[in-house]
Amino acid sequence: MRCVPFITAVLASFVTYTTAAPRYDMASTLSPPKWEIPRLVIYFQTTHDDKGRPISMLPLVTVKHIALTHLIVCSIHIHKDGIIHLNDYPPDHPRFKTLWKETSIMRQSGVKVMGMVGGAAPGSFTKFTLDSNDDRTFEHYYRQLAAVIRRYRLQGLDIDVEQPMSQSGINRLILRLRLDFGGDFIITLAPVASALTSSYGGLSGFNYLLLEEEYGVLIDFYNAQFYNGFGSMHSTAHFDYTIAAGWDPAKIVIGQLTDRGSHAHVALNNTIVQLREKMGVIGGIMGWEYFNAEPGGIKAPWEWAQVMTRILRPGLVPEMNITRDTAIKLTQTWIESVRPGMDALCASVGGAVNQACALSALIPNVDYMAMVNA
């Protein structure tokens, strides 16, 4: 089915175009760590609360009974004739200092920290950017993406194509990522679930069945969107249908919206139990997104991951040690992230009130010192 010698030859032909020395290792993409499956994946898109204060991801590794495997920072956007953005700002904007500091701690805890490019916003995969027929155009925008991956030490990239893209375009992007970043780099895609059983790629345009047939050896897994009318986990039927189309159940991570009530968790649990009894192994569960995940909601979004751990990965909880020095540095970084925006917000208020505004705005909404356990 999968033409491994062909792919290896194609990779070799890309050597003259690479931005880094090739570190390709086929074996590592074929054998994910056993502890990693079933995976528990969550997207981290809403990085700040409604007052502009950073939202901490650290409860996902400091709160008990959570066995997260992958955290995906999103969304990275490519802009024609512009620079790359993380949501509405360049990735190096001061507001993201807390985000990038916390991702380093997530990595230390054993969670794989990835980025996601694309999503619902248009622009990343057009003929003027990453799907360009002109090699120089592709190279220009690909280098922006590769620079973000390197600078922030992202361990993988989720490619969420929600606009028409050519088959050759997605092939080229995957090949290039694998060549430049090696076999340990995680490459995933995020199709709507219905695209996995159709020659038409749903929102993406290209054929996922063909992609997996020809280049699946380079792809670690698929964060399939089983929601919003594109799929359902109310029973095993849609997942059964997907596997019957030829997919490996270990490569399909079941995507769910996190802002649903406890009744949805009960139904999901029942379906997962049935699937694992029938298939032995499934790829895991993915949640979109962190900040308002139920049952805890905005005040305790990590509770979703606790529930999913009980469903999927009981007894596989990693340990994370946070020292007093680390907590102090995190607090300082949080203030640095907030200060530019808060200075502007409070500037319209004069005198003592202005000072009070600035001081209150710089009180972290997360107690890092309470996380100290080492």
Rank of each mutant, 00 (worst) to 15 (best):
T137Y: 01
R172H: 09
K112Q: 13
K127E: 15
A147K: 05
R107A: 13
M114V: 05
Q163G: 00
Y141D: 07
S132A: 15
Q108M: 13
F138A: 02
A147P: 00
Q163M: 09
G119F: 02
R172L: 08
R150M: 01
T137E: 12
N133Y: 15
Q155N: 01
R143C: 11
G123W: 07
G118V: 07
V111H: 12
M114P: 02
A146L: 03
D160A: 07
G123S: 04
H140N: 14
T126A: 08
T137C: 06
G115S: 10
G115N: 06
L154H: 02
K127G: 15
F138W: 10
Y152N: 04
P122N: 08
M116H: 09
M165W: 10
S124A: 11
G110F: 13
L173M: 03
S124R: 09
V117N: 04
R172E: 02
M114D: 00
I170L: 05
V113Y: 04
L130D: 07
S132Q: 12
H140A: 14
S168V: 01
S124K: 11
A146G: 04
Y152S: 02
N171F: 08
N171M: 04
I174G: 09
I159C: 10
Q163E: 14
E162I: 06
I149V: 14
I149T: 06
L157E: 06
R151I: 06
T137H: 05
R107G: 04
L157R: 02
A121H: 08
G118D: 10
R150F: 00
R107W: 08
Q163V: 01
I170N: 01
D131L: 03
F138M: 07
K127Y: 11
I174M: 11
R107F: 02
L157V: 03
E139A: 15
D131V: 08
D160R: 06
M114T: 03
T129R: 05
D160K: 07
H140G: 04
K112P: 03
G110E: 14
A121C: 05
G156I: 08
G119C: 08
S132D: 09
G156C: 09
Y152K: 07
E162L: 09
S168Q: 03
